[in-house]
Amino acid sequence: EIVWDMPNAFGRNSSDGVADVVFAELVAEKTNGEIRIVHHFDGSLGYKGVDHLEAVQDGGVPLARHALSYYGGYDPYFLLSSQPFLVENVDDVRALYDAYKDELGKTMEGYNQVLVSAGLFPPSGIWSREPVESLADLQGLKIRAFDLNSLNTFTGAGAAAVNMNWGDVMPALSTGAIDAVVTSADLGINSGINDYLPNFTEINWAVPISVIAINKDVWDALPENLQKAVLEAGAETTDRTFARLATQVEGNYEAMKAKKVNVITSPNPDLRSKLVEVAAPLIEDWRSKVGDKAAVLDAYLAARGK
């Protein structure tokens, strides 16, 4: 029996956590129990999310869940799927990943690992104390952004976006130091953000892609039948995870409405158009940083007729 310790920066019930459990079950099933995966959720193995890339590269762990949005400091190419407003639905996500995966696989190989599966995060929205229904509501709003792109975009659109440690967010909400948070529907509802911020505005920011990759040396040491089984398990996990997105978003909204969250799915169009406008230069900036590899984005846009 081969035992693989697999770290994940997020929890068991997060989108990635659920996908990891599915992957482990499929691997066990397809290898007849020859490979057993032991999960380490919530960063409990001591690694930060950004550490996973080198942890797998060096063989500290045999495999890991990689949230690609953490890896912009290694290579801006990892940030493709966290560029705002590229995708609007599941088909878009699927098309983006199809255009992306070969080149991404090569990039991961440069870090001594083999890409076997992909997952995704549900899109982020605005959790707020007062309803955010239009661009006017965003002006001067003290909002906690979650990455560099969101920080720049919300600042550009007139909000008072701040960068704040996640551990401070709840106390800051309870005392009124901030009035809004950009995060996904499920992350918000699961940590009870709705107790402070009873309004959620859907903006479909991005659907960031995450992947599972296995250390190349560990991979090469596997007999061919096990490699094949793991690849099959990975592909099936990808399919199931992508297919789950629509029901996942529905489920989140149901849960939120049950907790009396005011879900605003169609805010005044001026909100989104302003955010898209401010974000456009960020995407151009990304293009210039990745050079030729930006062709992947063009291929995706062409495929979806955008």
């Binding site: 001067g140 003290k142 920080l151 008072a160 976006a161 701040v162 960068n163 704040m164 440690n165 130091a177």
Partner: peptide, 13 residues
């Protein structure tokens, strides 16, 4: 900056 000028250093954390 955050309390009185509605802005942030963005590097504090």
């Amino acid at each position: 900056l955050r309390s009185f000028f509605a802005t942030s250093t963005n590097i504090t954390e």
